[in-house]
Amino acid sequence: MTTEIARHWRLNSQRYQLVGEVCPKCGVKMFPPRDVCMECADDTRQPDFQFSGRGEVYSFTTVHNAPEGYQESAPYTVALVKLEEGPLITAQLTDVVNSEVEIGMPVEMVTRKLRAQGEEGVIIYGYKFRPRLAVAG
């Protein structure tokens, strides 16, 4: 059993709520948050910015040979998702038929189990994306 606790715990707000940052100088929105702006290198404390969780698939692939800790859900689809506020983010797609994913597909964030550290360890939860829920008008 691994006990990687603090490493994941400190990212709770990012993993659960997509909290990133907006640069006070150039206005670029960033996920994940950084100490130094990735566009203008400004290093003043950047205010939090919560992303909407809506975006579209920029690229995707299906992982068949899953690494340790991920075999349970293999084969699964990972994607680069273009968030509507700008940044690209790497995440799994869930609640999806792997063969029906396409570039440009609108997706929304959900919180799911990313991995469990064995039967005895901590469960790591975080963002995944799914096709936007069809809602009757």
């Binding site: 490493r7 994941h8 990212l11 994940p32 920029y58 690229s59 995707f60 692939t61 992982v63 040979n65 899953a66 690494p67 991920y70 859900s73 699964y76 990972v78 994607a79 680069l80 983010i89 790497t90 995440a91 799994q92 570039i103 990313l114 991995r115 790591i124 975080g126 995944k128």
Partner: peptide, 26 residues
Amino acid sequence: ADADYEVIHGITFVALNALIMKRYMH
């Protein structure tokens, strides 16, 4: 790759290249 923002999502080295290749072809 980035342990906290790529690898935690079950990404593999092959998958990262596949993501780039898929978008390139598109």
